[in-house]
């Protein structure tokens, strides 16, 4: 076998691993998918059923009485926390990238950007620890009551501020975790913009900031969108930090921004052991369906980002 074929064979393990995983999840979750139908995505009722009663047969599947698997609250929690995270991360990320690319002297630039990028390297569980130990007390005692009092007229921002475990806390911590992804890519893109566009703008009398805002940023728009989508993908899959600070809500939607939530990823971790006590095995398959749904959403989001970034690679003139 020649070298080419050898590397192709061994290298395709990467692809095989992914395909095997998704296929396995699909096959394993199939009974649950058939049993749940579309209600899985539209209903707010996750119930393992009466674990101490005898199984009954519904629609050809053996399940426990009162068992029902509807994860609308998980989808809501996942999407809402990610939405908050990305809507905060993009402005902060763009601002930081601009300052890093244009506002810091080149000597300092790599050190300061290293400092910011280290934010992305910190493990999720350490973020969870920090959130659990200092951020939640700080937010619930100082920030949230203030917010509910003075900003309470805005819908979702008023009402009971709860214990600090909830949607906004998750959103804030997730923001920190994903901002470096946007900042790093955007900063690299801004720095690598050619001199001619810059010089043209300055020649027309634009200030430094105006150059960035009106000339450079539009050029790197696609990189911004691509990296934002990648960051979204990361936020969607975050597990440990969310598990420790989200409040682990089950079967209800958050009524305001401080209310507890659950995300699909954190739900799998917290419910797997309970699901394993279901003698019919349907609960575990329903969790596999959650994992499959999460996997597919991530694949979709990441695929989109790759297409956009790839298109930018091929399209950019790179003056």
């Amino acid at each position: 076998m020649n070298f080419r074929r050898f590397t192709a064979l061994v290298g395709s393990i990467v692809g095989v691993a992914l395909i095997v995983m998704v296929a396995f999840l699909g096959i394993y979750a199939w009974p649950a998918i058939r049993f749940n139908g579309w209600h899985f995505l539209t209903q707010n009722n996750w119930n393992l059923g009466n674990l101490y009663a005898n199984p009954i047969t519904i629609r050809g599947q053996q399940i426990l009485p009162a068992a029902h698997y509807g994860i609308l609250f998980l989808i809501a929690g996942t999407l809402l926390s990610t939405a908050i995270a990305i809507s905060l991360a993009v402005p902060v990320g763009v601002g930081a990238a601009i300052f890093l690319a244009e506002g810091t002297p080149p000597m300092l630039r790599s050190w300061v950007s290293l400092f910011v990028e280290l934010l992305a390297a910190i493990p999720s569980v350490v973020y969870g620890l920090w959130g659990y130990v200092v951020v939640i007390p700080f937010l619930s005692h100082r920030v949230y009551p203030w917010m509910a009092k003075y900003l309470g007229f805005i819908p979702f921002l008023g009402g009971h501020t709860g214990s600090g475990y909830g949607l906004l806390t998750c959103g804030l911590v997730l923001t920190l975790m994903i901002v470096p992804l946007i900042t790093a890519t955007l900063r690299d893109a801004l720095v690598s913009q050619g001199a001619s566009r810059r010089e043209a703008a300055v020649a027309l009398g634009a200030s430094r900031f105006e150059t960035v805002w009106t000339v450079l940023l539009p050029e790197v728009r696609r990189v911004l969108i691509g990296s934002s989508i990648l960051a979204t993908g990361r936020a969607l899959g975050e597990t440990m930090a969310v598990l420790m600070i989200s409040g682990n809500a089950v079967n209800y939607l958050p009524h305001n921004i401080y209310a507890p939530i659950s995300t699909m990823a954190s739900f799998i971790v917290s419910q797997l052991d309970s699901a394993l006590t279901d003698p019919t095995g349907m609960a575990v398959r329903a969790l596999a369906e959650v994992a499959l749904a999460l996997c597919l959403i991530s694949i979709l989001v990441n695929g989109l980002a790759r297409v956009l970034l790839y298109y930018q690679d091929r399209h950019s003139a790179g003056v």
């Binding site: 692809g15 992914l18 995983m21 396995f24 999840l25 899959g237 975050e238 799998i268 969790l287 990441n302």
Partner: peptide, 21 residues
């Protein structure tokens, strides 16, 4: 493409897969 997709798969999914198999 598959490698890029694999990067985005949440690690809990991989853990769940590992547990069951």
């Amino acid at each position: 493409f598959l490698a890029d997709v694999l990067v985005g798969v949440p690690s809990i999914v991989i853990g769940y897969f590992g547990y069951v198999t």
